[in-house]
Write a protein that binds this DNA or RNA. Structure first.
Length: 110
DNA sequence: TACATGACTCTTA
DNA sequence: ATAAGAGCCATGT
């Protein structure tokens, strides 16, 4: 635990700020927190967010293609798409339908 | 300090 | 259009 805010903490804050029924991409978040190019770190953070508080809606974070790349990292590979469908987002073939329409850019919206 | 890892993204063939 | 490789950054050992 560092006295300073790690990029993870910022990532969690951004992800938690994603409105219900919307999704975001790793690159967009990385760009929003300032570490553009560190999209991999965002995914890393999501992996560590597993079990932290408050809960982090990692299911709302997908790659730039709108593909559920991290679905296999959840407790169940269906948990991610299930949650997204519950929020009104359509998921077909592990891919978000109309991703651009549901896309939420933390740099613009926030 | 250097190497290895990773839920990504971009460029090139 | 699809496939493959390289680039990018932060973290841990």
């Amino acid at each position: 635990m560092q006295a300073k805010e790690s990029i993870y903490k910022v990532i969690y804050d951004i992800v938690r700020a994603i409105p219900k029924g919307r999704v975001s991409s790793y690159g967009a978040i990385a760009n929003a927190i300032g570490t553009k190019g560190a999209a991999r770190m965002v995914g890393y953070a999501m992996n560590l967010s597993h079990g932290i508080t408050p809960t982090v809606p990692a299911h709302r974070v997908v790659n730039r293609n709108g593909c559920l790349t991290g679905k296999h990292h959840f407790e169940t590979p269906t948990h991610m798409e299930t949650l997204l469908k519950k929020e009104g987002i359509k998921v077909v073939d592990d891919q978000i339908v109309d991703f651009e329409k549901f896309f939420w850019d933390p740099m613009i919206e926030l």
